[in-house]
Every structure is written in structure tokens, then in C-alpha cells.
């Protein structure tokens, strides 16, 4: 069964006051997300990710097309009882404490007072808000608001959660905590639909992704397939590497670049064509030690520069401007 089904969803805004011109924020998006899946919704800034999430939450209404969550139209009251939503850059009431906010939201689901307090306290533990939970939210940093935002999205034990840029504003530790949280949600059978423009988040979490640019779906599918051909080399970190040995390798095709890192360590760039295992074995034979080996991939933006340009070219052909 599909947790989310999006059919030809389109949102057109009119921009400009005196002479409104249409602007397509989302252009015929069709998408399915299976129940229990962690789905990454990727794309550069302004590609339509937030627009899609707002359409799913009925914060804005589609120009055409439809969206269903758990088999019912988006915005349906029964649907809202079973979903959670973290908006982009969440902001809450200045005058409430984190505890009060969660209890307030829990009340909207009809939980009794004791249950509200229990849920609020358990969720704040889960997202790592400690004694600060009794401070008014106006004193909260961006990262802490982000954590509160995630907690409030989970207040009703949702079957489907929508996270809009869940990692934004978080430090590395926080990012890892949220990653683990998402994986725990998946293990509980919860469908997670999250948007991001950072590829590594998606890579660590998702089974499938969709990639959006200029309001259009330009790629989608299992992440492994999508990224396999995107690797464009390897980065090899070695220590104890002799300078003369390095010179010898540099003149050959096996190493295309080398950066000294201090402490006798070097970061080496290896081309895609030659298997890295072979070069590594040769270097180890020369007495160097392996520190790490990582694939070098295009960032999402790098990949999209080309794709977006292509999309823009085709759009110009479809709608020639005088």
C-alpha cells in the first residue's frame, strides 16, 4: 500500500502586483511513497520541495492535480490525526515553554492532561532537550527549535511523518541524533518523507529518493542506482608515505593529485578508471599505511547544475519568449 500518492500536482503563483505573471512553483509532480519507507525528497534551494510539503499539508492549495495520504485526500481530518509535520525553519510561540508547547499540541489530539505531560516529556527526552524545556521558547537557539519541531511532529505517534529540512540548524552531533531518530521511526514502521538539499543525509537514511529541480521531477528511484554512476574518483588518505615514492606515482596515471595534510599524511586523488585497490596495495607495499579510502562524488548541486540547465533549456523550447 502507498502511504503517499501524488498525482500531477501543480502549483502556479502569480507574481508581480500590477502585471501578475504566472510562476510555476511545482509542475505536474507524480510520486508514490510506500508505507514504511524512508523517502528522500531532494533538490537545490527553490526547486519546489517546500511547496510540495505545504501542498501535502494543505497550507497552500494546488492549481491542479491531487495528493493522497494513507488513501485519503490530503487535509482530511482523519489523515491529520495520523501524520506529523516539521516545517522548514520551525518557529513557535515565544511565550510558551517547550513543555507547554508539546502539551498544547497534544491537547489538540484530545489526549487527557496526564497523557499530554507524559508524551511531552518522553519526546523532549528523545530529541535531547534537557532542563531547557522549562524555558520560554524565545530563548531557544535555532538548533533547539529544530529539535522541538521534530518532537512536536511526533506527538501523536504518527504513521507518516513529513520533515522539511530536518537537519538544518543542527550541529554534527545533532545531525547524528536525528539520523538515528529517523532510523528508529523506520524500525517502528513509520513512513518518513523528508526533504533535503544535502546529499549525505539522504544517502545515510533513504531507500528511495526523488530529485526535483525547477518544480519538476528530474530523477527518482532507489538511491544506489541513482548515485552509482555519479562517483567520479576516490580520495585516499595515507600516512608514512615517502616523498620520492609519491613523486614516482604522481608521474603515472594512478594518482591525479596529492595534498600534504601535515604529520606526514597525504590526501591523494585517484581516478575512476583504475581500481583503487591496486594502487592501495602498491602504496602499502612501499611502506605507507592506509588511513581512509572514500569515493568522491558530485555534490547534489554539482549534479544539478547540468540537469537544471537542461531543464531550463527544454522549458525555453516549450515556452519561447518573444
Amino acid at each position: 500500500m502507498n502511504a503517499i500518492r501524488i498525482e500531477a500536482l501543480t502549483k502556479r503563483y502569480n507574481v508581480g502586483f500590477w502585471r501578475p505573471r504566472p510562476y510555476l512553483a511545482l509542475d505536474g509532480l507524480t510520486l508514490q511513497v510506500a508505507a514504511g519507507e524512508v523517502f528522500g525528497f531532494l533538490g537545490p534551494n527553490g526547486s519546489g520541495k517546500t511547496t510540495t510539503l505545504k501542498l501535502l499539508m494543505q497550507l497552500i492549495f494546488p492549481t491542479s492535480g491531487s495528493a493522497e495520504i494513507l488513501g485519503r485526500p490530503a487535509g482530511d481530518a482523519a489523515v491529520k490525526r495520523r501524520i506529523g509535520y516539521l516545517p522548514e525553519h520551525p518557529y513557535f510561540y515565544d511565550y510558551l515553554t517547550a513543555e507547554e508547547l508539546l502539551a498544547y499540541f497534544a491537547g489538540l489530539f484530545g489526549y487527557a492532561a496526564a497523557e499530554r505531560r507524559r508524551r511531552a516529556s518522553a519526546l523532549l527526552d528523545e530529541v535531547g532537550i534537557g532542563a531547557e524545556r522549562r524555558f520560554p521558547l524565545r530563548k531557544f537557539s535555532k538548533g533547539m527549535l529544530q529539535r522541538v519541531g521534530i518532537a512536536q511532529a511526533l506527538i501523536n505517534d504518527p504513521d507518516v511523518v513529513f520533515f522539511d529540512e530536518p537537519m538544518s540548524g543542527l550541529d554534527p552531533l545533532g545531525r547524528r541524533e536525528i539520523r538515528n531518530l529517523i532510523l528508529r521511526l523506520r524500525d517502528r514502521g513509520c513512513t518518513v518523507f523528508f526533504s533535503s538539499h544535502v546529499l549525505s543525509d539522504a544517502e545515510a537514511l533513504c531507500s528511495r529518493v526523488a530529485i526535483l529541480a525547477g518544480g519538476r521531477l528530474i530523477a527518482g528511484g532507489p538511491l544506489s542506482e541513482l548515485l552509482a554512476f555519479q562517483v567520479r574518483g576516490w580520495e585516499l588518505l595515507m600516512s608514512g608515505l615517502d616523498a620520492a615514492v609519491l613523486e614516482r606515482f604522481r608521474s603515472g596515471p594512478a594518482i591525479t593529485g596529492a595534498t600534504p595534510l601535515g604529520g606526514g599524511r597525504f590526501a591523494l586523488e585517484l581516478p575512476l578508471g583504475i581500481p583503487p585497490e591496486r594502487t592501495l596495495a602498491e602504496l602499502v607495499a612501499e611502506g605507507a599505511q592506509l588511513v581512509s579510502l572514500t569515493p568522491i562524488r558530485d555534490t547534489l548541486e554539482d549534479v544539478f547544475v547540468e540537469r537544471v540547465a537542461a531543464a531550463a533549456r527544454s522549458r525555453r523550447l516549450e515556452h519561447p519568449q518573444p
Binding site: 497550507l59 491529520k80 490525526r81 501524520i83 516545517p87 525553519h89 520551525p90 518557529y91 513557535f92 499540541f105
Partner: peptide, 14 residues
């Protein structure tokens, strides 16, 4: 304006 309504309207209220 402060977008606090985003998370509120996702709750089961019209």
C-alpha cells in the same frame, strides 16, 4: 508571519 501556524494546521483542526 512567524509561521507557527504551519505546525498548528497540520494538527487535526480545521
Amino acid at each position: 508571519e512567524r509561521r507557527s501556524i504551519y505546525s498548528l494546521l497540520a494538527k487535526p483542526i480545521s
